[in-house]
Design a protein around this nucleic acid. Structure first.
Lengths: 221, 221
DNA sequence: TAGCTAACGTACTGGTTCGTACATTAGGGC
DNA sequence: GCCCTAATGTACGAACCAGTACGTTAGCTA
């Protein structure tokens, strides 16, 4: 998030295209995450900015393109976080566990992003398809996983037949589900998956699961 | 699904409250799953039934209650499927693997249900909360897991410190993510998680993962 | 400092959409 | 065969909502 919440300091430019655009994007992110694509109201987004609805159409063209821009920014944030990833000095087991923990933490800290991804899936990822940026964004995390996996498989530590994309899916599944489905899961099973007291338990559980899978003794198979 | 698609056989009752209600529910299930709660149109649902919009309000009261009824029916279907579950004659390891496979298959076969759950989570599970049925529906699967887990832990086969709810979350995560996020995952990583050729691979992967986690040698920890 | 354009605001519109008032009829009970 | 009511259909309204026509001004540039 670009976090534009300065109270319009005096002396600053009154007209500031970049700031106006960024402010619209931030408010739109919250509004789309809160209510979904169809539930979000362009008028409401405009009302919560220091500008008017006219500017949304001026800068983005329409509701559809605004949502695409929101997704682009949101995916940009994880990509940046993934680029900070520095685990390759660790041994493969520790590196994978660390990677899982970082993914876990990131999902927990960005529930809005999770909601946007859920919403985009309801719409068949059509906005990602419409975006020029998002198609070729790549994933730094995937490259990291690829290298750790290769090293672990070479040394014989990892026995599982997975590639980086599979492993990424496995780790993401757990992290994503925990945040995305916390409401229905809580309502049906009476357990809050994101409760603070359970955080360490689930964080450890994820690491244990992934490591157990990768290092399992498959002699008997 | 109650699947009301009989072509109005002649000789049948013209006025049939039960059939009209069921038909509305089925069409509404498709429409809500397709477009989300706010994206769904009451007029469109009515148009696709053999009755009119008036009947939706007559039987359900409104859009909100209709969606709740759709959820109630959809959750009823899994509960029924879970009651068919017959794995307790197997040894704990085989039983858990079988359970994972059944969950995997069920998610794959009911993408509409997955979408409805995603949509309900976007809305904070407020319709489940508003439902009298859904709160106390329970989960037959949870009881089964509880018994298998107890037996596996007693015999020392299972070493992991999980309860039934945790394990259910772990299995569901993978199955749910694979179906729910297939669009964004496919668009970003170029891999279709529900492609037929990969089905067996992922089904095995899930079982391996869960078993590896449950039976991992934790002596070194 | 004149003027030009990017940036911004106001007010409106046309279509949509949930919901309902009112009218009608099928068909079971007696 | 009559009557009563559950079930159904029609037509409409009022609010909402994405998008736009038109007018204005800040502030850089020559």
């Amino acid at each position: 998030m670009t976090s534009v919440d300065e109270p319009a300091r005096p002396g600053e430019r009154i007209r500031d295209a970049a700031r106006t655009r960024a402010e619209i994007l931030d408010v739109a992110t919250q509004e789309f995450a809160r209510a979904g694509y169809d539930g979000a109201r362009v008028d409401d987004i405009a009302a919560r900015t220091r500008t008017t609805k006219r500017m949304i159409y001026y800068y983005f063209g329409g509701k559809e393109q605004l949502f695409t821009a929101v997704l682009e920014q949101a995916y940009g944030v994880i990509r940046e976080a993934e680029q900070q990833l520095d685990v390759e000095h660790l041994d493969p087991v520790a590196a994978i566990r660390r990677l899982a923990e970082v993914t876990f933490d990131h999902h927990e800290q960005h529930p809005d992003f999770i909601r946007l991804v859920s919403i985009e899936n309801i719409h068949g990822a059509e906005h990602i398809a419409a975006s020029e940026k998002l198609g070729k964004i790549g994933s730094p995390a995937l490259d990291v996983i690829r290298r750790i996996l290769a090293s672990g498989q070479e040394s014989g530590l990892f026995t599982a037949d997975v590639d980086a994309v599979d492993l990424h899916a496995m780790i993401s599944s757990f992290c994503f589900f925990r945040v995305a489905n916390r409401h229905t899961f809580g309502a049906l099973f009476g357990r809050d998956l994101v409760a603070a007291e359970q955080r360490e338990h689930y964080r450890t559980m994820l690491g244990d699961m992934v490591i157990a899978y990768l290092t399992a003794d498959r002699a008997a198979d």
